[in-house]
Computed example of a mutant assay.
Amino acid sequence: MKTIVYLSKSAYPMHENQLLDILHSSRIHNAALNISGVLLYAESIFIQLLEGRDTILDALYKRILADERHTDIITLVNETVTEKSFEEWLMGFAVTDVSKTEKLAGYLKSIDQLDIDDKGNEAVLAIKAFIESSGLNIQN
């Protein structure tokens, strides 16, 4: 099992419907492959954490690297793990404009929902740092 965390810049401004499409298709695909994770978007920057079986995650990450919806992809973490940090999340999701998305299943209303205080691994710390520095409206 492994975790991959990457940061990227949106190739163009993402509208709410585009983000919701990404969320919907990610959930379907991730459920079929037993992948969990969280996707955060703030001011044209994505950070995503993905967890799953090594070979499946490596294949998915190759597709992500080729995806033209984002550029300047930086791999922050690509490591073997013994357990998932986001086991219950087919895809968690947060954006800066919460007025229309906060009722979605999987939308992060609180940083506490991530259970990040109990996890000291690099992947979870990268997500926490992004939340704290990006101004995402995710309150404790």
Results as ranks from 00 to 15, higher is better:
residue 79 E to L: 09
residue 93 F to G: 09
residue 140 N to L: 11
residue 88 E to V: 15
residue 118 D to N: 14
residue 71 T to Q: 03
residue 91 M to E: 03
residue 85 S to H: 09
residue 7 L to Q: 07
residue 1 M to G: 07
residue 27 R to F: 05
residue 65 L to N: 01
residue 5 V to R: 03
residue 56 I to C: 05
residue 90 L to G: 02
residue 50 L to M: 12
residue 68 E to W: 01
residue 36 S to T: 13
residue 98 V to G: 03
residue 117 D to P: 06
residue 137 N to I: 07
residue 68 E to V: 02
residue 39 L to R: 08
residue 132 E to C: 11
residue 98 V to I: 14
residue 70 H to F: 11
residue 37 G to K: 01
residue 113 Q to G: 08
residue 134 S to T: 07
residue 1 M to N: 05
residue 82 T to Q: 09
residue 106 G to D: 03
residue 58 D to M: 06
residue 13 P to D: 12
residue 131 I to W: 03
residue 1 M to Q: 06
residue 77 V to C: 13
residue 116 I to Y: 14
residue 45 I to L: 12
residue 38 V to D: 02
residue 128 K to Y: 07
residue 45 I to W: 03
residue 96 T to M: 10
residue 36 S to Y: 02
residue 112 D to Y: 04
residue 35 I to E: 00
residue 87 E to G: 15
residue 75 T to N: 09
residue 60 L to V: 01
residue 16 E to Y: 14
residue 95 V to F: 14
residue 139 Q to W: 10
residue 37 G to D: 03
residue 42 A to L: 04
residue 77 V to T: 10
residue 69 R to H: 11
residue 75 T to I: 09
residue 28 I to C: 14
residue 34 N to V: 06
residue 121 N to F: 12
residue 87 E to M: 15
residue 62 K to Y: 00
residue 13 P to S: 14
residue 73 I to V: 10
residue 70 H to V: 05
residue 48 Q to R: 10
residue 132 E to I: 14
residue 100 K to C: 14
residue 2 K to Y: 00
residue 63 R to L: 00
residue 130 F to I: 04
residue 8 S to D: 06
residue 74 I to R: 07
residue 29 H to F: 12
residue 88 E to A: 13
residue 82 T to K: 09
residue 2 K to Q: 09
residue 30 N to K: 05
residue 32 A to C: 10
residue 115 D to A: 15
residue 51 E to Q: 09
residue 70 H to D: 08
residue 135 G to W: 09
residue 120 G to D: 12
residue 17 N to P: 04
residue 5 V to S: 10
residue 58 D to A: 09
residue 138 I to V: 15
residue 132 E to W: 09
residue 136 L to I: 04
residue 75 T to Y: 06
residue 67 D to F: 00
residue 52 G to D: 03
residue 81 V to K: 07
residue 123 A to S: 15
residue 21 D to V: 13
residue 24 H to W: 12
residue 101 T to L: 15
residue 32 A to Q: 13
residue 34 N to H: 13
residue 127 I to R: 05
residue 95 V to R: 13
residue 103 K to S: 12
residue 67 D to K: 02
residue 30 N to M: 07
residue 15 H to C: 12
residue 83 E to F: 08
residue 64 I to D: 00
residue 81 V to M: 07
residue 42 A to S: 12
residue 60 L to K: 01
residue 98 V to M: 09
residue 58 D to F: 00
residue 112 D to N: 10
residue 88 E to K: 15
residue 110 S to W: 05
residue 25 S to V: 06
residue 70 H to C: 09
residue 115 D to L: 14
residue 104 L to S: 10
residue 77 V to R: 06
residue 33 L to N: 14
residue 87 E to W: 15
residue 66 A to H: 01
residue 34 N to E: 11
residue 80 T to K: 12
residue 31 A to N: 13
residue 12 Y to K: 15
residue 93 F to V: 05
residue 8 S to G: 13
residue 40 L to D: 06
residue 71 T to W: 01
residue 140 N to C: 08
residue 6 Y to Q: 01
residue 31 A to Y: 07
residue 111 I to D: 11
residue 70 H to Q: 11
residue 86 F to N: 08
residue 44 S to I: 01
residue 138 I to P: 03
residue 106 G to Q: 03
residue 41 Y to F: 15
residue 66 A to V: 00
residue 63 R to S: 01
residue 3 T to M: 13
residue 13 P to M: 13
residue 65 L to H: 00
residue 51 E to W: 03
